[in-house]
Amino acid sequence: MTLVETAAKATAAPSRAAFRPPPAATLVAGLALALIGVAFLWPGLIAPHSPDVADPVNALLPPGGGHLFGTDQLGRDTFSRVIYGTRPSLTIGIGATALAALAGSLLGVLALAGGRVLDEAIMRVTDVFLAFPGLLLALLVVAVLGPGTTNATLALAASATPGFVRLARAQALVVRRSDYVRAAVILGRPRAAIVLRHILPNALPPLLVLALVNVGTAIIAGSSLSFLGLGPQAPTPEWGAMLSDGRDFLSTAWHLAVFPGLAVTVTVFAINIVGRSLQVRFEGRTPGAGL
């Protein structure tokens, strides 16, 4: 099962009992995301120090004083590294989801619109890729391409795409059976026009919600890859990589284990809360959103 389907199962299936975040929580999460957005775009506005200027004399200082989150093994300011780490850390998850959603939607709609043979071909290949459980397809892709931001993004995109293909096709199918599309067919509108004007726009919103939910999962997956040494390269302050670097100093410097992980959790938690809220809204309108 892919990340998307996981997300779908985790969020859509138990729709009745699902956590409906109270408006206040959604607001707080939204504000947190805005702040994370600032850190993503202009880290220099928040971070007091440069992320990669080493100061070995002041290595492994505990939090406090001039260093809010302490310093790492080279005397770099952990808080600044966490802030500067926002972009590299989120790039993989967001990039992978965007790529997967785009490629998946196109392929899904194409499968439905392109005739029997194409449909069969796309869906069978999708089946094959769906047979790689969890992160394994991503790990296979990284093993082949080698580590790095681009390759890790491609790997996660590859593993999420099949889920989007299926979802997009299912959505498109629902839309195609709807009255207005039937009407358009009866009216003899060209096939391409129907796909572009009616099917695609109407199948999109639930896909977008699921993409948002998938971003959280993909960010965790991305930081896991980085943690294993498969993501961006040193001295990039990616959160997972920072945790991995700090592992040798756990007995002396607990702060190296805490803050980068906290950054991942806070970000993903905020995304999930906002995602849930949006999903709850959408569910009322689009019957297909729950799969």
């Binding site: 109270p22 959280g216 938690f269």
Partner: peptide, 28 residues
């Protein structure tokens, strides 16, 4: 609501971080 929020929190945390935290505080 509290339990649901906790559930969402656990699914929002990377496993390797939880593991490192448990190691740091319960083992070391």
């Amino acid at each position: 609501r509290v339990v649901s929020a906790l559930e969402l929190l656990t699914t929002s945390s990377p496993g390797f971080w939880i593991g490192i935290l448990l190691l740091t505080f319960l083992s070391f």
